[in-house]
């Protein structure tokens, strides 16, 4: 850190040059930091989230379903090990199976998406289930959902609330 301290002695040419050099060091240091921050952000973009939405629920109903397409856009497999939202007491990834015309919802085990693989959460099928929601969210509201990933920073998604078409 010592080399970036700016020392200015007026009238001394070498000290002016040193001053300029020091400024350059500071500027390049700042640029370097900025570059490393944006690089870190790029590193965080490991999942592509398409068409996210949450179905508006009738008044007083504390459960919501969120839908979206989650694609692993990295070269390596990614494991989703948890999902959460601050507005719900419990949030789970639910898979839906229609067995003999009986709809069965179950919590999904941890999911590993291979490179390029997509997890499709769509109406009438698997979804993120938000339970114990106290507030009523109307069309136009946005709810944050956080996906926890194995060995990677969590991914936050803002999901708009919409009415069923």
């Amino acid at each position: 850190m010592k080399q970036i301290v700016f020392q200015h002695h007026p009238g001394n040419v070498s000290s002016i040059v040193r001053g300029i050099l020091n400024r350059l060091v500071i500027i390049s240091f700042l640029f370097g930091s900025l570059a490393s921050i944006s690089f870190a952000q790029a590193e965080n973009e490991v999942l592509s989230i398409k068409s996210p939405w949450i179905r508006e629920a009738p008044p007083g109903i504390p459960t919501l379903a969120a839908y979206m397409e989650i694609t692993n856009i990295t070269e390596s497999p990614i494991s989703i090990i948890g999902v959460s939202s601050s507005i719900a007491k419990m949030t789970e990834l639910h898979e839906v199976k229609l067995e003999n015309e009986v709809m069965k919802m179950r919590k999904m085990a941890d999911i590993t998406l291979n490179s390029g693989q997509t997890l499709e959460l769509k109406a009438g099928g698997s979804h993120v289930m938000l339970m114990g929601v106290q507030e009523s969210f109307k069309q136009g509201a946005e709810i944050e959902i956080i996906f926890e990933l194995k060995d990677l920073p969590a991914v936050k998604v803002m999901v708009p609330v919409k009415k069923d078409s």
Partner: peptide, 12 residues
């Protein structure tokens, strides 16, 4: 009514 998917879809 706590059903978040199939029931609201059917009622819709």
């Amino acid at each position: 009514t706590f059903c978040p998917d199939a029931c609201p879809m059917a009622l819709n």
